[in-house]
């Protein structure tokens, strides 16, 4: 009896552990997204000029753009490998509903990659010329933003599962949904830097992350089930 009750949480925890360790080690792990993020950062002064006045003005906004783009990078492989080698068919027989499986995979991916990008965000912003005292608030904002990116991205990844055009298609599907967190995140930084209150932007950013957490799994679950049939 007790094993039956504990089966769900236990399966969830081991799935999360497995996916997290895979996302940390497989194919260079988060290194790919981190390298992409830093490369984008280096391209900004190269394309806009190294004038520190211009750079510090655009730093928060462009950092958010780079964060959104870097979050796209690992989505293609999020469900694909498990879909191809049939893991989903096995997981389906287990105690976890498909919605929870999808959410756990997104969370593992976020812990492995998104969180790494979020931790880097204050540094990227400061290197581009934002003041150092904005570091803490930018870290908080980036954590919330990358969580939204990971889950919304999971919807795109699950929808384009098994299609021929994987990566580009995901970007096309997902980027319009990245608009609100990018606006709220970049707006938050701008409010902070101009001395305006940040509460509104921060609560909107949090609300979007919670909204994605609540409704994203339903969409992903439906998409995965349809892909498996």
């Amino acid at each position: 009896m007790s094993t039956k009750i504990n089966a769900g949480p236990h399966a969830a925890l081991s799935l999360l552990k497995r996916d997290l360790s895979l996302s940390l080690t497989r194919g260079g792990g988060p290194l790919l997204a981190v390298g992409f993020y830093l490369t984008l950062m280096a391209m900004i002064p190269l394309s806009l000029g190294s004038d520190s006045g211009t750079l510090s003005r655009v730093a928060p906004g462009l950092t958010w753009l780079c964060l959104a783009l870097a979050s796209l990078l690992s989505l293609e492989r999020l469900f694909e490998r498990d879909y191809e080698d049939g893991l989903f068919d096995i997981l389906r027989l287990g105690p976890l509903p498909m919605e929870v499986i999808a959410l756990l995979k997104c969370l593992a991916q976020w812990l492995g990659t998104g969180l790494m990008l979020a931790v880097l965000t204050p540094f990227v912003m400061i290197i581009l010329g934002a003041p150092v005292d904005a570091a803490f608030i930018s870290l908080i904002a980036a954590i919330l933003g990358s969580l939204s990116f990971a889950i919304i991205g999971g919807i795109g990844a699950s929808l384009s599962l098994g299609t021929r055009k994987g990566g580009v298609l995901i970007a096309l599907l997902v980027l319009p949904f990245y608009v609100p967190p990018v606006i709220f995140g970049a707006g938050l930084m701008q409010a902070y830097l101009t001395g305006a209150p940040v509460v509104q932007a921060l609560s909107l950013l949090t609300a979007y992350a919670l909204f994605a957490l609540a409704l994203g799994p339903i969409a992903m679950g439906a998409a995965l089930k349809s892909a498996l049939n």
């Binding site: 384009s160 319009p176 609100p180 979007y208 409704l215 969409a219 998409a223 349809s226």
Partner: peptide, 17 residues
């Protein structure tokens, strides 16, 4: 099915956007 899911996700998201 996939496009229907996308359309519904979009329908929920459009007011937010």
């Amino acid at each position: 099915k996939s496009t229907a899911i996308l359309a519904l996700v979009g329908l929920v998201n459009l007011p937010i956007i």
